[in-house]
C-alpha cells in the first residue's frame, strides 16, 4: 500500500445512490483482489520450487495492484477521506466484502491451485466485461487487470492439468482440492439488489451471466486433468454482506498488525 496516496476532497458525490452502489461494488472487487493477494503472498519463500515462488508472488502482486486501484477509487468516491491504506488496514472482518473463496486457507499446493483456477476463470471474463463499463475509471482498471488475469488462469490451468493427470498421489490430492473448494464458487455468481441496479445502469454485469463461460473454461481444464466436475450441493455464502469464515479474522490480524501498532506510520 502506498504512503503517498492523495486524499480526495471530502463530501464529493456523497448521498448519490449510484455512487454509493459503486463504492459497495468497488469494495467487493477490491477486497477479492486484496485478500487473494495476501493469501498468495503467504507462499513467498515457501513454494515448492524457486520458479513457483516467483510466479505466486507475481500473481499476488498483480492482485495487490488491482486492489490498490479499486480501493483508492472506492475511497475517493465515498468522500469520507479514506484512502487505500485506511480501507485495507482499518476495517474489521465484518466490513470486508470479499467472497469466501479467497479467504480460505492455502491448504496444500493443490488447494491453492484449485482456488486460483476458480478465481482467475471468474475474474478474467468479469474484468473483460467491466472493461466496457459505463464507468470509465472502473473500465480502465478492469482492462488492465483483465490482461494480467489471463496469465493467472493459464498458470493455474497448467498446474491443475499437471497434478490431475500426474501420479496417483497428485491426482488424488488435486481431486480432493477441487472437491473441497467447489462449494465456494457458487457465491461468485450469486446476485443481489446492488448487482441488479448496477447491471441496469451498465456499470457492472450481473455475475450470474458469466457463470456459463466460467463453467465452460473450468470444465475443459478439469477434463484435461482427468478430473470430474463436483456435484453442486452446499452453497456457502455471505462474504458480500460481511459474513465470513473464521479464517478471515486471522488473515486480517496478520495483515493489519503493523499498521494498527503504528498508526499513520509511513516508510
Amino acid at each position: 500500500m502506498s504512503a503517498r496516496s492523495a486524499r480526495s476532497a471530502p463530501g464529493r458525490r456523497v448521498g448519490d445512490r449510484a455512487a454509493t452502489d459503486l463504492v459497495g461494488y468497488l469494495l467487493r472487487l477490491g477486497d477479492d483482489a486484496l485478500i487473494a493477494a495476501q493469501r498468495l503472498a503467504e507462499w513467498s519463500s515457501r513454494a515448492p520450487e524457486m520458479e513457483e515462488d516467483i510466479a505466486l508472488t507475481n500473481i499476488a502482486l498483480d492482485q495487490l495492484g488491482a486492489a490498490r486501484a479499486l480501493l483508492t477509487y472506492a475511497g475517493e468516491l465515498e468522500g469520507a477521506g479514506r484512502d487505500e491504506d485506511d480501507l485495507a488496514y482499518l476495517r474489521t472482518d465484518r466490513e470486508f466484502a470479499n467472497c469466501l473463496l479467497v479467504e480460505l486457507p492455502n491448504g496444500d499446493f493443490a488447494v491453492t491451485m484449485a482456488k486460483l483456477l476458480f478465481l482467475a476463470a471468474y475474474q478474467h471474463p468479469l474484468y473483460g466485461w467491466l472493461a466496457g463499463s459505463a464507468d470509465d475509471r472502473l473500465a480502465g482498471i478492469a482492462a488492465k487487470a483483465r490482461k494480467e488475469s489471463a496469465y493467472h488462469l493459464e498458470h493455474a490451468a497448467l498446474w491443475t492439468v499437471r497434478l490431475g493427470d500426474g501420479t496417483d498421489e497428485s491426482h488424488r490430492r488435486m481431486r480432493a482440492a477441487v472437491d473441497e473448494v467447489w462449494p465456494y464458487t457458487h457465491e461468485l455468481f450469486a446476485t443481489d439488489d446492488l448487482l441488479e441496479r448496477l447491471d441496469k445502469a451498465g456499470v457492472a454485469v450481473n455475475p450470474a451471466a458469466v457463470r456459463d463461460g466460467w463453467l465452460d473454461t473450468v470444465e475443459k481444464v478439469l477434463d484435461e486433468a482427468t478430473l470430474t466436475r463436483p456435484v453442486d450441493g452446499w452453497t456457502p455464502g455471505g462474504g458480500r454482506r460481511g459474513l465470513h469464515t473464521e479464517h478471515l479474522s486471522y488473515l486480517l490480524a496478520e495483515m493489519q498488525v503493523v499498521h494498527r501498532a503504528h498508526p499513520g506510520a509511513t516508510w
Binding site: L61, D62, G65
Partner: peptide, 11 residues
C-alpha cells in the same frame, strides 16, 4: 501508465 497494476517501480 503502469506496465502491470502492481508494478512496484511506479513509486
Amino acid at each position: 501508465t503502469p506496465t502491470y497494476s502492481g508494478c512496484p517501480a511506479m513509486d
